[in-house]
């Protein structure tokens, strides 16, 4: 973990209520895809934990949905604004288990961490298949970015306006054999993928957090290997340890 000041490079709406923010600053504490940053916002006591979508040596990209006052405040920030970040939080995804053809399954605001993960897996010569789930066409983002990386990409929409009609689990029916699953999204989606997947995998969880770095015990969950803090021992849990 590192605490540092980051500068907003850009902040734009890329889909309905969904914003992409690029921040410049020291990203050296970020060591794995699936980690998050915790952002201090003026006028709010608690920081906002947001997963990292893409990371370079001196910049990072986050994608967030406006769901409350904090994210609404974030959406109004312009280039040049300075933010205090705790970076390199959480365990992130582990790559060693992926096999040749892992599925990267993201639902809505769970799609962003799949981007960095996809980049890293491609760099290692794997053939990841990305399944992105959204409710409607106007919520879709980053489809072309994943395709530009060269990853096989499947989109599922609940209303059937684009791609496969239904959920990410319906998308799973269309991709053939796979070696592993990496998952991030709302809990009902995680559970559905957990039940449907025939391989092992890693699932990224969300919880309301106090500190984001393991001190307050605000986000603890039960696992088969004992209590774990989502912010510090997670947010990524292995399929084998999850208790629903």
């Amino acid at each position: 973990m590192k605490k540092g000041i980051f500068t907003v490079v850009s902040n734009r709406e890329i889909a309905k209520n969904t914003y992409e923010m690029v921040l410049s600053g020291d990203t050296s504490a970020i060591t794995a895809p699936g980690q998050f940053v915790n952002i201090e916002l003026q006028g709010f006591y608690l920081r906002r934990p947001i997963s990292v979508c893409d990371v370079e040596r001196s910049s990072l990209t986050i994608i967030y949905k406006v769901v409350g006052k904090g994210t609404e405040y974030m959406s109004r920030l312009s280039a040049g604004a300075e933010l205090d970040l705790l970076s390199g939080l959480g365990n992130g995804y582990s790559l060693g288990e992926s096999g040749e053809r892992p599925l990267l399954i993201g639902g809505g605001a769970g799609v962003p961490p799949m981007y960095e993960l996809c980049k890293v897996l491609l760099k290692e010569g794997k053939k990841p298949v990305v399944i992105m789930g959204f409710n409607t066409e106007d919520e879709i983002f980053y489809r072309e970015r994943f395709e530009a990386l060269g990853a096989e990409t499947v989109v599922a929409t609940a209303d059937g306006s684009v791609g496969v009609k239904g959920f990410v689990t319906d998308g799973m029916d269309t991709v053939g054999e796979y070696s592993y699953v990496y998952v991030c999204g709302p809990e009902p989606m995680l559970k559905a993928v957990y039940d449907k997947s025939v391989t092992s995998g890693q699932f990224s969880f969300e919880e309301r957090m106090g500190c984001g770095f393991g001190a307050c015990m605000g986000c603890t969950c039960k696992t088969k290997y004992g209590s774990k803090r989502i912010c510090k021992d997670g947010p990524v849990l292995f399929k084998e340890e999850i208790i629903w």
Binding site: L46, R208, G210, C216, C219, K222, S227
Partner: peptide, 17 residues
């Protein structure tokens, strides 16, 4: 183990746990 989650909520100038 403690209480079920959510265990945290924000307040003006503070938090609830």
């Amino acid at each position: 183990f403690g209480n079920p989650t959510p265990r945290i909520a924000e307040a003006e100038g503070g938090l609830l746990n």
